[in-house]
């Protein structure tokens, strides 16, 4: 598990997907932790990536930027970055910004095919 006092993440697998569970506050200070984890996954040809938002309390533009950085690359490799278990508060923000048009967002991991 990668962590500091404000943000942590852990990795699991679901079928062919790598599942990155994020917790805490994803901002300019903590986003490099997630950025490095996704970058490492792609280097290992793990291009099917689920990010579990269940325990995420906050996301800033730096957090959004991590997903924006890699989304086209993984899709070009026939993968995806899929977001799950988002709180209502964060989901509303994604809707308001229009990011629900860019990312697939599911309530549970089992909905992903």
């Amino acid at each position: 598990m990668e962590n500091n006092e404000k943000f942590s993440l852990s990795i699991e697998h679901f079928q062919t997907w790598i599942v990155i569970k994020i917790q805490g506050y994803l901002d300019a200070h903590t986003s490099p932790i997630l950025e490095n984890t996704i970058s490492d996954a792609i280097k290992n040809d793990e291009n099917q990536i689920i990010v579990d938002f269940e325990h995420l309390d906050y996301i800033s533009s730096a957090g959004f930027g991590v997903f924006m950085e890699f989304i086209e690359e993984v899709r070009e490799k026939e993968g995806d970055i899929v977001l799950v278990k988002m709180s209502d508060k964060i989901h509303k923000l994604f809707e308001l910004l229009g990011f629900t048009y860019l990312f697939k967002i599911y309530t549970t991991i089992s909905e992903i095919k």
Binding site: S60, S61, A62, F64, G65, V66, F67, M68, E69, I71, E72, L97, G98, F99, Y101, L102
Partner: peptide, 14 residues
């Protein structure tokens, strides 16, 4: 933000 969604890349959202 619309342009970011059309051509996603890191940075510039703040």
């Amino acid at each position: 933000i619309e342009e970011h969604i059309k051509r996603p890349h890191k940075g510039g959202l703040g």
